[in-house]
Design a protein around this nucleic acid. Structure first.
Lengths: 192, 192
DNA sequence: GTTGTTTTGCATCGCCCGATGCAATATCTG
DNA sequence: CAGATATTGCATCGGGCGATGCAAAACAAC
């Protein structure tokens, strides 16, 4: 047929995910990705199209990764899983330092692109919905009433923690919020 | 002497505050301010210097305005003042629509300029410190123990609410978080 | 080896930004 | 009115971005 690519598409996508996560949409440039990946600007553009198209693929990948992690933590679903998740929020994360303290790509994206592209907003909303459903299912699994409203609160608190992390640049910044949120959930479980 | 200015410096500063608040640092341009204020780019630059200098003046002004409002709400300081403040968070705000749903200029700034200018970071940190001290004083005024740590939590929760507002683009989005935070504060006041 | 197709590298375009030089302009002082 | 001085408007510079045109290069099929 023809000349094959001399880079792995998934690998480049992962690298782009890291860059967008760490630096944000605007600050991440095709030139920068060229340096980081070793793949020429022209090839990147050939493969992924315009910048926003690449970004949307990155967002989708991020959501899939989160989905997979959530499925593990919430198996089985329940208050214990919620507590485990929140406990982890306040502790140092694994992986690359610049990234593990960057908070959440989705939160950062909304702050940066506030009133931008509908496609981006839709992707972020899908992400939020995923969390909402997960919390709700977990609360219902343990027979906790008012699960819908309370799941909504948990999403809010979670995003608050992620904001804190971004604000202070370190994962541990979420600890105070996480701690009190855990206490609240346990009060629910105790019937209050 | 010489030719006088034909614009009011404070007025332009207020306009710049609105623009940065609504659109963020990058999206706010000198050209845009020229259109909005009717003052030429050259004059703006003459008066305020480079863009970051103008931004720093805006941040300082924002903090002073907030300081004044806080002094009113927390007179006298105490749990009641905290409750009043949090109750207000979940309700529709006054003023220009685009701005009242923009959240908090300081929160937005940190998200946008994450690892940028030290001067900006210092200004934001001063703002956080102002809140921390206010909460701490209020808690101590009512004899609530562990005031320092709990004030820290309140700052976190507050910034979480402001994030929520920005995320959803409407003030009411903070309501779930505000409600539970109020309950938590009242539990402290009740001695738990 | 020849042909055909895709990728790749290089150069370039158009755009918008922040910033500045310069000359014309408007006002105050005397 | 005349002179001094700060402001203003215009044109422009330099830079970085996303995006694209084009020809050379690399590989697969035959």
């Amino acid at each position: 047929m023809a000349r094959p690519r001399n880079f792995d598409e998934d690998e480049v996508l992962g690298c782009a995910l890291a860059a967008f996560w760490r630096d944000g949409f605007e600050a991440t440039t095709y030139k920068g990705l060229e340096v980081e990946t070793g793949v020429g600007v022209r090839s990147l553009h050939n493969t992924f199209g315009e910048k926003e198209a690449l970004f949307l693929r990155v967002l989708a990948r991020y959501r899939e990764l989160a989905q997979a992690t959530l499925a593990q933590v919430f198996d089985p679903p329940g208050v214990a899983a919620i507590r485990a998740l929140l406990s982890g929020m306040g502790q140092p994360a694994e992986g690359d330092e610049a990234i593990r303290n960057a908070g959440c790509l989705m939160v950062n994206t909304v702050f940066e692109l506030g009133r931008a592209s509908d496609a981006v907003r839709a992707e972020v909303e899908a992400y939020r919905q995923m969390w909402r459903d997960t919390f709700r299912t977990a609360l219902e699994a343990d027979g906790i009433p008012d699960a819908g409203r309370r799941a909504e609160f948990l999403v809010g608190a979670l995003w608050g923690m992620l904001s804190q992390i971004r604000l202070e640049g370190r994962t541990e910044a979420a600890a105070p919020l996480a701690q009190v949120t855990i206490e609240t959930v346990e009060a629910w479980a105790a019937g209050n």
